[in-house]
Write a protein that binds this DNA or RNA. Structure first.
Lengths: 188, 188
DNA sequence: CAGAACATGTAAGTTGTTACATGATTTT
DNA sequence: AAAATCATGTAACAACTTACATGTTCTG
């Protein structure tokens, strides 16, 4: 079974969701298109790891509300404990551009950084907002391992730190983009 | 052309490399296996974006030393300037496990975190070492946009920040893994 | 009135991984 | 003696993306 399947099971262990909802919640820690999610949910249902209930809605299309089964929980728990860690992949075209940033003029380099910065700041605000919401929720506090939100909360905390740190890195890097302080090699 | 091709071009713009060397240098900012790199280099060579020279070695297998061509530089520069940013993907099974960490006992959760921490600390030391080496290099300083190392140096700085921040997050999270402070709902 | 959000699905194509294949030298 | 490093390549398979397909309601 592919890792995405366990990501879906994990989300359904928190609360029942439609495929559409899973697709959006997933963005926090894994990337997948709906064309990958829907067939996979159907497969998990065939295997008895999830079940669904058809919810008829008015004004919106009908949806399938998926829930995790006991055997789904067992499979997920097993995977968390037993599966040896695979090495993670990060693929970000921005990083490729930075590697070769010396090839374009400093202004273009600076623009790339500023564009990235804007996107990250917007992301940061959204993350901080949803962390605040989680912390204000009534019931078992999200910082408690017994909260159904615990893992999700930890991932939000992680992400917010990563985004802040990347913004700091951008701010540290930006002043380096001046027209070039290097002497031309021909007259030292 | 796929993003990986530009990653290879970027690395060759810094210095000529063999496919084997590219494969290892690539790990800093993109993930790819040799089985993807070798055929791609051959394709880039056919298109005139790179050239290679066969280097016969004693005690080691022969290798192909690839260099970027002027038209390769042009193609890369064009891509950096013109290509609109695609959204990045991060796929890390550890994050899936964290999302559902509440399903296993706190001890198993803590172990997962400690294992991750060890790997990150090792990574951090290697990164700090290679940053130090770059900074001590003679010639144009790596902090200068005119240095061929500039982009690579920025990426190292970024990575080291990310790794440090993740370690901080782990250390912040670890104390939360106590047997659970939540009251059982049946006797309040 | 165009576009986004809600909602699910399939088909075709691309990208990326694992396994197969070879082989000398150095390190543990 | 086994494992790692250097070095390149192909074949088969799995994973993932893009495009096709449909239809209502709400928002700008």
């Amino acid at each position: 079974m592919i890792a995405l399947a366990y990501a879906l099971l994990g989300m359904l262990a928190r609360k029942p969701c439609s495929g559409y909802e899973l697709m959006k919640l997933l963005k926090l820690f894994w990337q997948a298109q709906h064309s990958q999610i829907y067939p996979l949910l159907a497969k998990l249902e065939k295997e008895g790891l999830v079940t669904f209930e058809l919810i008829g809605q008015t004004g919106k299309p009908d949806k399938k509300l998926y829930s995790i089964t006991d055997s789904g929980i067992d499979a997920l728990r097993e995977w968390i404990r037993e599966q040896p860690p695979t090495d993670s992949t990060e693929r970000d075209e921005f990083l490729i551009k930075i590697y070769a940033i010396g090839l374009v003029d400093p202004e273009a380099g600076r623009d790339l950084f500023l564009e990235r910065r804007e996107a990250l700041v917007a992301r940061l605000h959204r993350l901080e907002e949803s962390i605040k919401l989680m912390e204000e929720e009534p019931g078992i506090p999200v910082t408690d391992i017994a909260s159904k939100q615990f893992g999700r909360y930890l991932l939000h905390q992680r992400k917010v730190r990563m985004v802040r740190e990347e913004i700091d890195w951008l701010d540290w890097s930006l002043p380096l983009f001046k027209p070039s302080s290097a002497q031309t090699p021909d007259h030292p």
